[in-house]
Every structure is written in structure tokens, then in C-alpha cells.
Design a protein around this nucleic acid. Structure first.
Lengths: 209, 209
DNA sequence: CCTACGGGGCTTACACCGTAGGCTGTGGGG
DNA sequence: CCCCACAGCCTACGGTGTAAGCCCCGTAGG
């Protein structure tokens, strides 16, 4: 007898649905009309909970960042950093459609900023001076962001043959391309990511003296 | 007396104008109608040179990559890598609006792929086995892409105060945030980028034995 | 010189987008 | 009990990508 049991609209439900749409078909698949439809509501009703689409996109980035689970503070600093990086990568893989927003949108909430803040804190407590900690932070964050971006973006297109058509390449003029392609087929992302992480963290450790 | 001297439309002219628009106002500012207007032409005329907007976006990414000047092959391998990374960063800074396309679009032409191919070649010729070269390549490429993305994206927003409002933060609960912010103000991107590069290349060198 | 053709531009039209503005029903506080 | 704030809805406007068709003009063949 009651209403058709449609759960009440809420900002969180909207953001969640938007992330789902983005992950399924990329950011361009997210439209206020489709989003409303997915929630059983008219597009304009969303505006009771979200100022506009830009704010919604920011909220999606924030929500993805809030999913990054922060490492146990009892671990040694290098283990903490590695764990945090791994968790970031997991969150990025869970939300391939949200990840590109990093390139264009800003982190708006303190909770979203928490993983970045935490990285800095770990480095400071490991003994680095503020400026050195920032250097190390930027290095780590750049690598992690870049790796996950490659993985979900261009690299996947290469792997799935949606990029260059390898069959048309003149391998005499490009003797290493075929080798590179073969290595790509063999490569193990988990191991590769860990390798990069090791190099970076070793580099930081050496600067600790 | 002649025609108003409108140079003939061409794919290259279209792509160039599109990159200019993207760099000025971000990818969303690029619309076929505005692009046509900028070239003194109707939107639909563009379709004589470009299959659709998706292809145009791919072409923009490709064009930006083709701007990366490849290093002098007579240099030592580590100098070549550093030079290539620096040139990539320069191209990325020249085209802040095109850079986010890395996250969503694929490299379509062999010329666009050239900087990546070259990195791999340098690593191979430095003595790394194919799989190790790919590891090192992914590490370097991820760092460079991530760094330039941060620089032009979220980081700039932070620096320009468009991100979190620092004045509302509880610095007792977040004792390191203020320090991090101060370090951000001081930081020198060129030095910071070079620092990351050094750590990565050192790491590669150590694996050369 | 005439004619035929083809390519590159223009126009029209359609479905979809974000969102301003205003309407309506409903549930909770005075 | 009243009212009013809020969360939905509807309508409408200007902008978007692009399919389809038209038209003009530059060139090639006779």
C-alpha cells in the first residue's frame, strides 16, 4: 500500500550512482537526465542535493579518495607508504571512470585529501624535513597516479588492440617495437607496480641517512 | 579582390585550433560549433576532415605527443632519459588542456607513440633485458605523466586556493597540514621534478650491475 | 569551350544535454 | 490548525554532436 519503496534521494546516493555510471561508461556517460532515471527521479530533482554537475564531479573524485583505506600506523614507515600506495591503486581500479577526474578537478574535502595528507605525515615521521617530505610525496604520488592512470587508460587500449594496429608496423624501421609489444603481453601489473614502489622507497630511504 | 584570404581548411589546422581552445579553457570548451566559428566555417564542414569528435580528441593527443622533441642519441643513456622526460614535461605544460586526454584516449599514430618507443629503446640499449626495460619504462612514464598531470590539474587548484579552504581547517587535528601547505608555497617544480627523475634513474642504474 | 563530376563547403533537422524558473503536494513545527 | 520549507515535478531555453541533403565551384575529358 505504501509508496513504491523508493528510498529517499540523498547526495550520497546520487554520487554513488554517478560513480557507477562513470565506471561503466566513462565520465561522458554521466548525464543528469540518465542519472535521474537510474534513481527513479527527474533530472531536476537532483539539484535539490547537488548545486550543479561540476560539483557532482568533484564529489565523485572526493568519494573515490575517501575509499582509500589508510594504513595501520603501527607499521614501519616504508611499509605504511607501500600499503597506502597499494590501496590507492585498488581504489583507482575500482573506479576507472572516476580516475580521469584527477586531471581536471580539485579535491574539495578534507576527507578526500586525507590519503595525501597521510603520505606526507608518514614521510615526516620517518624523519624527513618538510621540504624533503614534500619532494618525496610528490614523487610517490606522481608515480602512483601516473601508473593507475596508464593502467586504466591508454595502456589498456594498447593491450586490447584499440590503439596502434601492430600488423601495419614496419618492424625494420622500428626494431624494438615488437619486443616492447611482447613484453607488454607478458607483463604483470602487480609486480611492475611493486617494482616502481621499491625503487622510489629505496630512493627515499637513502636520503634519510 | 580575391577571397577574404581564408586559408583552406585542413585536418592539421583543425587539430591545432582545437588544441588552442582546449589549452585556453579545457576540453569541455571544445565544441564543433565553436571550433568551426574559430576557423570561419560551419561546424559541419569540419566533418570533411575529421570523422567525428572522438577522432578529433585522439588527434589532439597525438599532436601533443608529436611535439615532444626526442633526445640526441649521442648522449649517455641516463642523460637521454632525463632530456626526454624534461621535453615531455615541457610539451605537457604547453598543452595543459590536452594532457587530461591521456587518461581516457588512446595513442593512435606511430608518430605519437614515438616518445614512448624511444624511452624503451634507450633502456634496451643501456643494457636492460626487454622485461626489465619495460618495468623501468613504466616506472618513468608513470612518474612523468603523474607529475605533469598533478602540476596542471589538482595541484594548481590547491596552489590557487580553489581546492580546500585552508582557513577553516582544524590544525590541531591535522598538525602537519599547515606545514605541508607552507612547503607547497615554497616548492620549486623544476627542482622537484628533477629530484624524482634522479631517484628513478639511480634506481635503474643500480639494476644494471 | 562545353560538360560532367566530385569534393568541400552550407543548411536543416533531430535527439540529447545542463539548468533557470515556477508549480505542487506533503510532512513537521509553531 | 496553519503554514511554510522542502523535495519532488514540468516546462522551456540555449547549446551540443552529427545524419542527410543541397549547392557551388574547380578541375578533367571530350
Amino acid at each position: 500500500m505504501d509508496v513504491p519503496a523508493r528510498p529517499p534521494l540523498s547526495r550520497d546516493r546520487i554520487v554513488e550512482a554517478a560513480m557507477e555510471m562513470a565506471d561503466a561508461g566513462g565520465v561522458p556517460m554521466v548525464s543528469m537526465r540518465k542519472l535521474g532515471a537510474a534513481l527513479g527521479v527527474e533530472a531536476m530533482s537532483l539539484y535539490n542535493h547537488v548545486k550543479n554537475k561540476d560539483e557532482l564531479l568533484d564529489a565523485m573524485l572526493d568519494a573515490a579518495l575517501r575509499e582509500v583505506v589508510l594504513p595501520d600506523t603501527t607499521l614501519v614507515w616504508d611499509e605504511q607508504l607501500a600499503a597506502l600506495a597499494q590501496e590507492f591503486r585498488l581504489a583507482g581500479r575500482r573506479h576507472p571512470g572516476v580516475l580521469p577526474l584527477f586531471g581536471t578537478r580539485a579535491i574539495r574535502s578534507l576527507e578526500g585529501f586525507a590519503p595525501l595528507e597521510r603520505s606526507f605525515v608518514i614521510l615526516r615521521q620517518a624523519g624527513l624535513a618538510p621540504d624533503d617530505a614534500l619532494d618525496a610525496f610528490m614523487m610517490l604520488a606522481s608515480f602512483v597516479l601516473g601508473y593507475v592512470t596508464s593502467e586504466n587508460g591508454g595502456l589498456r587500449e594498447v593491450a586490447e588492440g584499440r590503439s596502434i594496429d601492430f600488423s601495419t608496423i614496419d618492424f625494420v624501421a622500428h626494431p624494438f617495437l615488437i619486443e616492447m609489444g611482447e613484453a607488454f603481453v607478458r607483463h604483470d601489473g602487480d609486480r611492475e607496480f611493486q617494482f616502481g614502489l621499491d625503487v622510489l622507497i629505496d630512493g627515499i630511504r637513502q636520503r634519510l641517512t
